[in-house]
Design a protein around this nucleic acid. Structure first.
Lengths: 248, 248
DNA sequence: CGAAGGGTTGAGATCTGTCAAGGAACGTGG
DNA sequence: CCACGTTCCTTGACAGATCTCAACCCTTCG
């Protein structure tokens, strides 16, 4: 396969310009691309964990089902994201993962990560950076869930998605596609679907967010950021200084 | 320094029996042990991030201050824990860290981590495992904050601390020391101090948790686990299969 | 002895959840 | 093109959990 067509190569390349050797090393890990239908589960909550995967196309989410019947969505995955890093040190899945839309995924066994550690310092550092970035994103979501009211939670989440989409598609994000039902948003933000609806209505009335089906428009980003207490530092990693030292 | 006295060697050794070479490599990173007083801050929220540290003695916590004046505590660190991994890919701190009690810490520059990546596959894998374990713990805290009521939140947190203390001290934990004020617990669990107090009173009246100052007693672990929906799988990592492959 | 920090208790306010009914959009089959 | 079911969303009324404010108490420590 041509390295530049690989989804994982493209993803790593965003972090740091890869050498051809590194690209080849990554590509060799990519056995196969599997098409997956919307709603299919990539794995369930207590499955054996022996591989991870990258999303080539389509959105996905990870979740935990609770004993009281509710469900918490932990993470929304966009094309290019690596899924399943969480369980690297565990033999069992701690969260399920499900496709939101039709898409394509690439599976990699865990042991191939060890190969990477053995062979490329750059790729090892990027893997570590990706893992720590995921930790930072979960942390921000935790703060969002614990400390903000419904209005801020929703606004904050929309701004996060807007920023993430902008980073991968590199065009503006005043308006973007958000293929998530209100039920899903409720499970993500720890609210009831009913209250999600009310909150959208309120944001709409205040002219801050317009939602039509799966399209969201944010007319005044700064106003909404102020409303939500959104600070995008947590989405903007800066690995340059580190790699400097790694490569000289 | 004798490797077996190093706090970081002891910590890594919990994950996997280290070779003498690995121990020496780790020890060389440990320049100095600094004593720190209760209440001192190891770093603030927007400081430059160029090092991490391990806790040798004393408890610490990381936190985020919000624009609305509230504070969210992200993590409680116990002796042996590594602090600051979160910011490996960032040049700025995203959270402050403060000592809860008097203690001792060991600082390491980020670039020494790269040295480890270069020289030891075992240590690299352990670092990755530690990072993914931290991610799992934050995820569980997120679920706890988003989906459970005050009673369950508090019970779940106490059980987590009990389990963590047991893992490092390897004796029972029916009764253990918890040097956290109710205000700190409130900032940790996303509740008000007043409600923490009420919840302790309720748990006490039901005979599930007894608290006297900084001592907590849980007479019936199973009963409390049931009440809280606590499942300790997330604290029990299993790296054996992975290292098997790494080392043969 | 007084001050300060931490914990407890009560009353009222607020946010969000639950339940229930109804409406809008979409796909399917006739 | 229409009828129908399904899914998703909206709205209202009420209930419950937690917050805020305020007063008070206890312990510790200088």
């Amino acid at each position: 396969m041509n390295p530049d067509e690989s989804c994982i190569v493209r993803h790593f390349d965003q972090y740091f310009r890869l050498s051809d050797d590194d690209k080849m090393l990554l590509v060799r890990l990519e056995d196969s691309v599997s098409p997956v239908k919307a709603g299919t589960s990539l794995w369930g909550e207590r499955d054996k964990a022996y591989e991870f995967c990258t999303l080539k196309r389509g959105w996905a989410f990870s979740y935990r089902d609770l004993e009281n019947g509710s469900r918490q969505i932990l993470e929304i995955y966009l094309p290019g994201d690596i899924v399943g890093l969480r369980e690297f040190a565990f033999s069992q899945r701690l969260a399920g993962v499900q496709m939101i839309e039709d898409g394509e995924v690439c599976f990699f066994p865990h042991r191939h990560l060890i190969d990477i550690f053995r062979r490329s310092l750059t790729l090892t550092s990027i893997m570590f950076a990706i893992s720590s970035r995921q930790q930072v994103m979960i942390t921000e979501r935790l703060v969002n869930l614990a400390r903000r009211n419904a209005r801020q939670k929703l606004a904050h989440f929309l701004l996060e998605m807007c920023q993430r989409i902008k980073q991968t598609q590199s065009d503006g994000c005043e308006s973007f596609r958000l293929p998530l039902s209100q039920e899903l948003l409720a499970d993500l933000l720890g609210l009831s679907p009913v209250h999600i609806s009310r909150t959208f209505t309120a944001l709409n009335e205040d002219g801050l967010v317009f939602r039509d089906r799966h399209n969201v428009t944010i007319p005044d980003l700064e106003a909404l950021k102020h409303e939500a207490g959104f600070d995008d530092r947590y989405l903007i990693e800066n690995m340059r200084p580190l790699f400097h030292e790694a490569n000289v």
